[in-house]
């Protein structure tokens, strides 16, 4: 009982600290247009964007294929398999696109950020920045936050495209739906809102990943072991938060 209470208290306190750091990072965004920061932001975008493109392609493709196969087989029982285009497109745009992209980015980019921040704590680099009166939140967190807030939606658009294409492949090869029929159907029933909600999610997930990763990284203690722990926690906490926030956002925009 007492242990559970303590755990809840710790979680609340950590969330509070992470949010404070996030607000501070937002506040420092006004300095992102300076020459040096702009360069750093671009650099972080490149790192976040390029690193995971390969994995994202494979995951996006197969997500679309699974969606098509799964729903397609059900729909065919009622002779409705020509609606497969809509089914895949809507699921990808609203849910699976942002979700899958976020999981991959959390596991690759988020964990890398946590490891880097953790290593910097252990090597006294963060302390060195503080002595030089260089705010670590402005110097390290802000560029990464901006980069992921921009790159997550862009990568999600890419995942969506690959996923929808994957669905089309299944549609033509296994469900006897032609390419044209597939895409016509998708265009007919998908609304802009589906895209926007998905992109909003993607941006929120980007914020979650950076915040969790930086907060965990900065909280690293006890050397190399601590860095490993920070990385592991980042992935787990990001996954959970993404799942829960994803549900809440869907619930907000699509009431029954």
């Amino acid at each position: 009982m007492a242990a559970a209470g303590r755990a809840i208290l710790t979680t609340v306190r950590n969330t509070g600290r992470a949010l404070l750091m996030l607000f501070e990072a937002f506040f420092h965004m006004r300095s992102m247009f300076g020459k040096r920061m702009r360069h750093e932001v671009m650099n972080q975008m490149y790192i976040a964007g390029i690193k995971s493109l390969g994995v994202i392609t494979v995951v996006g493709m197969f997500t679309g294929m699974i969606l098509a196969l799964q729903t397609g087989l059900e729909l065919r029982r009622f002779g409705l398999q020509q609606n497969i285009g809509t089914a895949v497109a809507v699921s990808m745009l609203r849910e699976m696109g942002p979700f899958m992209t976020a999981l991959i980015i959390a596991a690759s980019v988020g964990s890398a950020i946590a490891a880097q921040m953790g290593t910097m704590v252990v090597a006294e680099e963060i302390a060195a920045l503080e002595i030089m009166s260089i705010n670590p939140v402005r110097f390290l967190v802000m560029p990464r936050l901006v980069a992921l807030m921009v790159m997550m939606p862009l990568l999600t658009v890419y995942t969506n495209m690959v996923g929808i294409f994957g669905g089309a492949v299944i549609g033509t090869t296994q469900l006897e739906v032609t390419m044209t029929a597939y895409f016509d159907n998708a265009r007919l029933y998908v609304v802009n809102k589906d895209l926007y909600v998905g992109l909003l999610k993607a941006m929120v997930f980007g914020i979650v990943i950076t915040t969790v990763a930086c907060h965990q990284g900065f909280a690293t203690r006890e050397g190399a072991v601590g860095v490993g722990q920070a990385t592991r926690r980042t992935v787990i906490i990001s996954f959970l938060t993404i799942l829960i926030l994803g549900y809440i956002i869907t619930r907000m925009f699509y009431t029954l």
Binding site: M120, E124, E125, A128
Partner: peptide
């Protein structure tokens, strides 16, 4: 401040 570990940004 010269840190024991050097503390250079990698």
């Amino acid at each position: 401040y010269l840190f024991q570990s050097g503390a250079l940004l990698q």
